[in-house]
Design a protein around this nucleic acid. Structure first.
Lengths: 121, 121
DNA sequence: TTCGTTAGTTCATGACTTGTGAACTAATGG
DNA sequence: CCATTAGTTCACAAGTCATGAACTAACGAA
């Protein structure tokens, strides 16, 4: 049968990473948590996607989408390692392009998470 | 007839402002532009909503929604001044709660805006 | 007072997005 | 070659967003 299912794993070039795209990616609590975990585990940290997340009671397809959005926003770089997927933050490129923004976001998130009573909308 | 149409103009308390809500609000290019304009026009700057925006070729209802999202995320404070609406950034509260995050986002946005070739999704 | 204008909100709805189960791929280990 | 693990893709229901139409609310002029 030989269906060719190349799955390209697209990562944007550094110059194509936008502030808006990053903010959008991190505006979801699940993605923020995932990214903060990868980021704070000593940059650049390599980890299996679904071990990092410890399933979080979310379906695989949902997590797969979240990782895709993080990847395509330029925040993480993913590589297939055998049957697993490993992700690292693109922290050097991100710092070069956006200065202290990412660090400031993670710091603010870690300082305030779990204490807001309301959410948007 | 005397319909009472109180329109409350809700602003969240500082402790209820979340990082995710702010990132979501600023992940839209129109809102980012509006906020950057208010913010960079010397904090806290008071300005008529629709003059700041100079209509941007968007319908009023759309802009009204964008201002509402900025307001309810906690980024701006709005006040009715006669027939106009005036907004200021809540920069002191935001700095107290989130440190340099907002400034870092605006700086990164101003440094890179207009140069990304692709956008999210 | 009433009319007109300006500034903005609310509502309804159609278009787009997002989350998820089901079915799939792809690598590895018996 | 079958089973298992890890993850992706697809389809579609449910939710969110953008916008025109209709409205409010303040003010100025006659």
């Amino acid at each position: 049968m030989l269906k060719i299912f190349v799955r390209p794993l697209h990562h944007p070039a550094a110059r194509d990473i936008s502030v808006e795209g990053i903010l959008y990616a991190l505006s979801d609590p699940v993605r923020m948590q995932i990214f903060a975990e990868i980021e704070s585990a000593d940059c650049p940290q390599i980890c299996s996607n679904f071990l990092v997340v410890a399933k979080k009671e979310l379906p695989k397809s949902t997590l797969s989408q979240h990782f895709k959005i993080l990847r395509e926003s330029g925040l993480i770089r993913s590589e297939r390692k055998g049957v697993e997927m490993h992700s690292t933050t693109r922290c050097t490129e991100l710092r070069d392009r956006f200065g202290p923004m990412i660090r400031a976001i993670i710091a603010a998130y870690q300082k305030t998470s779990g204490q807001a009573k309301k959410k948007r909308s």
